[in-house]
Every structure is written in C-alpha cells, then in structure tokens.
C-alpha cells in the first residue's frame, strides 16, 4: 500500500516536472501583462492579435508548408529508396545504410553547418529552397528506417506469387507489396512531418532572406522576451495535437475492445511511431 503510494507520488512529481513549463506557457498566453512572470489579468487579445501579426503568421506558414512538402517528398523518395536498398546486394546495402545513418547519428549542428557550407560554397541563396532541401535531407533517412523493417517482414514469396499469377513486376509491387508496407510508410511520413515542424538547429543554419519558422522566431525573440502571441499560437497547436491523439487513442480503444492482444499491438504501433520520433526529435 505504502509502495503504491510512493509510486503514485513519484510519477505525479515527474509529470508535474514535465508539464509545469507547458502549463506556464498556456497560462501566460492569457496574460494581460507582457512581461513574463507577472500576471496582469486575463485576456484573449494575444489570440486576436495573432491573426493580424505578419511575422508570426509567416513563420507559421513557412513551418507548415516546409513540414508538408518535406514530409511528402521525403516519404516518396524514402519509400522508393527503401525498396531499392532492400533489393540491393549485401555490400551496396551496407554502404548505403551506413551513409543513411550519418544524419541520424550526427549532431544536428554538424548536419546544419555542413549543409550551410554546401549551399554557400555553391552560391545558393539561403532561403525557402535551401531550407526545404535541408529538411528533406534529414527526413529521408527516418522514412527509410521506418519502411525497411516492414519490407524485411514481408514474405519473400509474395511478389513472386503475384508474378506467378501473371502480374508484371510493377503491378505486383503496387498491388501486393505496397499495401503490406503502408503502415511503415505512414509512420515514416508522420516522423518526417514532426521532425520538420519542430526542427530548429538545421533550419537556423540553412535559412535566410527573411524566411523563418516558428522555432527560429522564438529563438530570436528569446532574449528580449517572447511575444505572448507565440504562446497563444503554441497553445493552439498543442491543443490540436492533443485532441488528435486523444481521438486516435479513443478510436483504437473502441475498435478493438474485444481483442486485447490486437489492441496492445496497435497501441505499440502508434507508440512505436512516437518512440521512433523521439529517438531524434528535438535534438539540438
């Protein structure tokens, strides 16, 4: 009983630690006073201002558009690459996979300065395009790492069976292989999107010409004091994600009420996605 109580309070404290800053952010998005730490009364005007602020809206726009485009491109390139790598001979496979790990294992700052060096060396103007290229570059490896295990689980005979039944290779791929690896592709796309919208370090080095995302905006504001509008924006984004996750959780729970094992498995998939993301998300 005592043990249970200790465990409860311990996890309670850890969660307080995890959520205190988030709570503070949310509370201060309703704060009349502009200076942080002082409560000046409740207001919604930061939320109203938010939709009129050019700088923040553009940061939001760039964050989202870079996120969507890099997720789509890296998912396509990465999926094809994974299939290609899977069919390579041992040596080639090993080489490509090791190179593929470089952006995953390298500190983000190294990837960032290396890409910046490249763009400047070849006289690329830093801006939207370089930012996008950088994001696609660090997203593809994760897509490949999400799709490859699904290919490895695939029954080798599956595509062969389809071709045996008269399917041409591409048809067999589209109708038989692709549906089987779709969960991996979705996972990869989700990871790519998450990594992209949350990235700061690589974006910091590879952008220019006034193109900034939310992270960069926050960073540049941090010393002077972050505009509470940013708090408002994050609160909106956080709430959206929270609702989305709760909805997914609710649906998985409801669908599989009768089948405990299956449910567990599905949960692991969802969590696995997040777990993978975690392994490199936020690395600064």
């Amino acid at each position: 009983m005592v043990k249970k109580w200790i465990e409860r309070s311990y996890s309670g404290l850890i969660f307080v630690f995890l959520y205190a800053p988030i709570l503070v952010l949310i509370i201060f998005s309703f704060n009349e006073s502009r200076t942080r730490g002082n409560w000046g009364g409740f207001t919604l005007h930061w939320y109203a201002d938010l939709f009129r602020d050019r700088q923040i809206l553009s940061a939001f726009y760039y964050t989202l558009s870079i996120g969507v485009i890099s997720a789509v491109v890296s998912t396509i390139v990465g999926t094809f690459a994974a299939v290609g790598i899977y069919n390579m001979r041992y040596l080639g496979q090993k080489t490509i996979l090791n190179l593929n790990y470089l952006p995953v294992l390298n500190p983000d700052i190294v990837t960032g300065v290396a890409l910046m060096t490249l763009f400047i060396f070849f006289n690329f103007r830093l801006g939207f395009l370089t930012l996008l290229l950088a994001h696609i570059t660090f997203c593809i490896p994760y897509v490949i790492l999400a799709v490859l295990p699904k290919l490895r689980q695939l029954d080798k005979n599956l595509a062969e069976a389809a071709m045996d039944l008269g399917a041409k290779p591409f048809y067999a791929f589209r109708k038989v292989v692709l549906p089987e690896i779709t969960p991996g592709i979705i996972t990869g796309a989700l990871i790519a999107f998450t990594l992209s919208i949350d990235d700061f370090v690589i974006s910091f080095f590879t952008t220019g010409s006034g193109v900034t995302n939310i992270s960069i905006t926050v960073f540049s504001m941090a010393r002077r004091g972050v505009n509470p509008m940013i708090n408002a924006l994050s609160t909106i984004m956080f709430t959206t994600v929270l609702l989305l996750l709760l909805w997914i959780n609710y649906r998985t729970n409801k669908e599989k009420e009768e089948d405990e094992d299956e449910k567990e498995l599905q949960m692991y998939n969802v969590l696995g996605t997040a777990g993978d993301t975690l392994s490199d998300d936020d690395r600064v």
């Binding site: 800053p21 952010l25 700061f200 926050v218 994600v241």
Partner: peptide, 16 residues
C-alpha cells in the same frame, strides 16, 4: 505529448 510543444518554447518556459 510534451514533445509536440515546440522545443524552444518549452525551454523558454523555464526562463519564465
């Protein structure tokens, strides 16, 4: 879940 709040903002919140 906290990971879905922008990393810089979370760190900034500690300044607050």
């Amino acid at each position: 879940l906290p990971m879905w709040m922008n990393f810089l903002l979370r760190t900034y919140a500690w300044m607050t």
